[in-house]
C-alpha cells in the first residue's frame, strides 16, 4: 500500500487542479485576473526537496507527459518544464539551507519559472499575443497568491509524507 501512496497523492493533485478550476468562479481574485492552480508542481517540488531528488525528476517527467496529453494536447511543454524545474531545484538545494520557509520560497520560485516558461512557449507557438506586462499583472501575481495559500496549507502534511517516503527508501 505504501508503494502506491506517492503516485496516488500526485494523481490526486493532478486531478484536483482540474476540479478546482471547474468549481471555483473564474473571477476568484477579481475580473480579468487568471489564477492558475499549480498544486501538482508544488507537490513535485516538495517531493524533490524533502523526499528523493531522483524520484522528483522522474515523476516530473511522468506527470508532465500526462498533463500534456490530457489537458493541453500539445506534447512537450510540461514534459520539458516539470523535470527541468525539479532539476534546478536540486541545484538550488546544494547552495541553500533547507528549512520549511526556505523550501516554500523555492517552490514559489519554481511556480514562477513554470508560469514564465509556459507563457514563453505559448508566445513562441502563437497561442497567445499577451504582452509581458499584461502577463505579470493578470496571470503571474494572481497565480502566486493562490499558490501561496495552497503551499501554506499543504507544506506540513507533504513534508511529513515525503520524509517518511525517503526513510522507507533507505530501509
Amino acid at each position: 500500500m505504501r508503494r502506491f501512496l506517492l503516485p496516488l497523492i500526485l494523481l490526486a493533485l493532478f486531478i484536483g487542479e482540474s476540479i478546482f478550476v471547474q468549481i471555483t468562479p473564474h473571477d476568484l481574485l477579481g475580473s480579468e485576473k487568471i489564477a492558475v492552480p499549480r498544486f501538482l508542481m508544488a507537490g513535485l517540488l516538495f517531493l524533490t526537496i524533502f523526499g528523493s531528488k531522483k524520484h522528483g525528476i522522474l515523476y516530473g517527467l511522468l506527470f508532465g507527459l500526462l498533463f500534456d496529453i490530457v489537458y493541453v494536447e500539445i506534447i512537450g511543454i510540461y514534459l520539458f518544464l516539470f523535470p527541468l524545474i525539479a532539476f534546478i531545484t536540486t541545484k538550488l538545494m546544494k547552495i541553500l539551507q533547507m528549512n520549511i520557509a526556505m523550501a516554500s520560497i523555492i517552490v514559489l520560485l519554481g511556480i514562477t519559472l513554470l508560469e514564465a516558461g509556459v507563457y514563453q512557449m505559448n508566445l513562441l507557438i502563437h497561442h497567445t499575443d499577451m504582452d509581458f506586462a499584461a502577463f505579470l499583472s493578470s496571470r503571474l501575481v494572481p497565480t502566486l497568491i493562490l499558490n501561496v495559500i495552497f503551499i501554506i496549507l499543504a507544506v506540513y502534511p507533504l513534508k511529513r509524507l515525503f520524509e517518511k517516503f525517503e526513510a522507507s527508501l533507505n530501509d
Partner: peptide, 15 residues
Amino acid sequence: TVIGRNPDRWHELLI
C-alpha cells in the same frame, strides 16, 4: 457532462 477542464487556461479545453 463536463468532467475536466484545462487548469492552465492558456488553451481553453474541456473534457
